[in-house]
């Protein structure tokens, strides 16, 4: 259970980091575009602005866009999926008191009474069980012989 929590928190941190990275890239992309517009406003020769935009800005703008898309379409869904899987496993590993009672009840419903072949006392075993000795006799015989007395 502890392991699941550590894994879950590492995946959640990575996902949160990736989401923040995406936001920062979007903001940088906007600022970069604005800087190009500012060049025009500052009176930088049109030819220089166009050349810079075409040769330098556009390929980078495209790369940033690709990165944002990859994060959005691949990274975040992948990490979210792993988080869901681990969360589910974590929930399954927790036995609540109620679940524990229900599980015991379920087992009890499938138990029958048997008579011990050694001491003749009755004891509970699961339906279809091949056990023929009560726990007390089993323990005693096991200690005496060092072998499983139920195995004939």
């Amino acid at each position: 259970m502890q392991d699941y929590n550590v894994q879950l928190s590492a995946l959640q941190l990575l996902k949160r980091y990736i989401e923040d990275l995406k936001k920062q890239l979007e903001s940088s992309q906007r600022s970069y575009g604005n800087k190009i517009l500012e060049l025009n406003d500052c009176g930088v020769p049109r030819q220089v602005v166009e050349e810079y935009s075409l040769v330098f800005w556009q390929p980078k703008d495209h790369s940033i866009m690709t990165l944002i898309q990859q994060i959005e379409e691949l990274d975040i869904p992948y990490l979210q999926n792993q988080i869901n899987i681990i969360s589910h496993a974590d929930n399954n590993s927790k036995y609540t008191k109620e679940e524990f009672k229900r599980a015991i009840q379920r087992i009890k419903n499938e138990m029958i009474m048997k008579r011990c072949q050694c001491c003749d006392n009755t004891f509970e075993v699961p339906v279809g069980s091949k056990i023929v000795l009560c726990p007390k006799c089993f323990k005693k015989l096991f200690q005496d012989t060092g072998r499983d007395p139920n195995c004939r």
């Binding site: 550590v6 590492a10 995946l11 992948y78 990490l79």
Partner: peptide, 27 residues
């Protein structure tokens, strides 16, 4: 460092490796 943390946290090796080798490398 987040990728390293994920690996150190014990996330299943195929999950962590796939993320590192495919997603992280591309990014």
């Amino acid at each position: 460092s987040h990728i390293t943390n994920m690996i150190d946290a014990g996330v299943a090796i195929q999950v962590a490796e796939k993320y590192e080798e495919v997603n992280f490398r591309n990014n």
